[in-house]
Design a protein around this nucleic acid. Sequence first.
DNA 1: TTGAAAGCGCTAACAC
DNA 2: GTGTTAGCGCTTTCAA
Lengths: 341, 341
Amino acid sequence: MSRLNIADIARRAGVSKATVSRVLNNRPEGVGAETRERVRTVLTETGFRPTAAARCLSTGVSNSIGLLIPDITNPFYPQLVSGAEEALNAEGYHLFLCNTRGDVAREREYVEALIDKRVDGVILDSAGSADDDHVNRLKQERIPVVLIDRVIGRRSSYPGVFVDNETGAHDAARLLVAGGNRSLLFLNGPKDLSQSVERLAGVERALRADRALIERLRILNGDFTLDSGARLIEQLLAAGPRDFDAVFAANDMMALGALGALRRAGVAVPAEVEVIGFDDIETARIVEPPLTTVSQPTRAMGEAGAAMILRLIRGQRLTRKSVVLAAVLIERSTTRKRPPR
Amino acid sequence: MSRLNIADIARRAGVSKATVSRVLNNRPEGVGAETRERVRTVLTETGFRPTAAARCLSTGVSNSIGLLIPDITNPFYPQLVSGAEEALNAEGYHLFLCNTRGDVAREREYVEALIDKRVDGVILDSAGSADDDHVNRLKQERIPVVLIDRVIGRRSSYPGVFVDNETGAHDAARLLVAGGNRSLLFLNGPKDLSQSVERLAGVERALRADRALIERLRILNGDFTLDSGARLIEQLLAAGPRDFDAVFAANDMMALGALGALRRAGVAVPAEVEVIGFDDIETARIVEPPLTTVSQPTRAMGEAGAAMILRLIRGQRLTRKSVVLAAVLIERSTTRKRPPR
DNA sequence: TTGAAAGCGCTAACAC
DNA sequence: GTGTTAGCGCTTTCAA
């Protein structure tokens, strides 16, 4: 008993393969009501389901899409993935999850594999920044791409959904400065990522009015992990007396790492040092003290990315080439209460 | 310029498609060294890569596998996924991520879709317990299945990799009781999951010696989310005076939720109430006080699951049908220090 | 409205 | 060692 194929169904229904195919694909024309009914019956009786590979080979459509992310282990991404997966699944698409582990080489390999698999589209949260050869490969193959979370290459070249990193970072830095802090430590992400560039720009804009602030601004680059946040603070504290009174981290994991390091060093938060993160992952709410952070609509980004790739796949025009969602500062308890304005 | 196919390569190399195919698949026989070299050259010059769907249709092998998990948003699963994905990717497999959102109906749909896609294997962290019709569908289609994290159906029927839930839960409950607690609150998972059954068995074994303990044991069922852990505690506290002095939660998220609820209610942990979780997610280490918990080798489970499905796919025998990894209790600070024995 | 047949790009049995 | 050819299971022209 080998698997049924469309010829078997055709035989049982007393029609041709072509007719079965038409019914299968709900083609409105080309099949009489009665015939259609007959085929439908056989279809449900047998529980027939067409083989995806055959379909893909014949049509070039796979009903699957590739999702590339840097690190599924960072709580930010599951949220993104979940949003995208749910939206795409509702439309009959399935997801190849590609965890690039922050490695552009691996990202490239994944892209080639996705091309081989004839995915209908790719949602890319890239591990890199400037280099976009592999993305151009997708374009060559006419596979739609939507960037998400991070820009790659020249800003305008690919559609995508992002967050307003500049404003988010600006608001965070502004709050820190308004609270009377004089020496800001900015734990940024890897130097060349678009997010890092944008968030740095936001921080600098917030300090621009005061030259002394700018001069005392200290920038360190981490890799978005808890450990890197902790290590950076530990190294600083070990190197000499503490010379910062506020920390802004480019993501919550690093902020949380910093928080831990400060606690172990006996530095009071927020009394002696204020801390702000970025992302608003679930953990940010439940640590003690709860983390002040710039909240991203992460799940919504995933959904928006899915919606965008679907439009592209269907050949519909994009209302906006680039969707930028707001990142809003949430004051919790790693910053001191400000007097109401 | 349509995509190159194997016929184009054959033409350029002045050989037949069969020969190209043999080279492509590294078949040792059937191609002379010189010819092989010539074909190789054309292959690399053109950067030719075969279309996966054509291959799949012809061979029945897709080089992709399905991974089904209940909730990618729970920090336990990304770890599992990451371990499996990395191991599988190293062997040239790609992953369909299926986030079942705890819904068995959805799980079934995913399984059908995976069959259509002719995945070479399935790793299943099931949303359900008793019902395994869809798993039998996979068997019918001769697609190997490896259970992971949770058993489904009768224990022995499918191979898989699990953790020793009974011992883990026993050790946790034992510690709580040994600390002098008299009234244990067990925040278990959904009633019929294998994990819930096993962990409950562990808890009961730990209390068995003392009838009074058993009588005062209170069991509530949550859904593994932070909110459910918090809500359960809140409801209990709202309903009357606190009548428990220790909480064991079936996962860290619920334990963390409970911790938050206790804090908000002004109950001191561990002084008034001791709390233990299960999983040992990253957050468990960084909350204040750090959570005592039963640590699972989550990433290793993912890797072991991947290794197992690979053996099955390759038709190799399994050394053990069921791999059970140890879950070890990690004492941190939501339990009081015990005098050394 | 329906069917016959070609074709998607590859593999593998068989012939030479 | 190498090539010819028949599928794999579907879709889609083109005729009838």
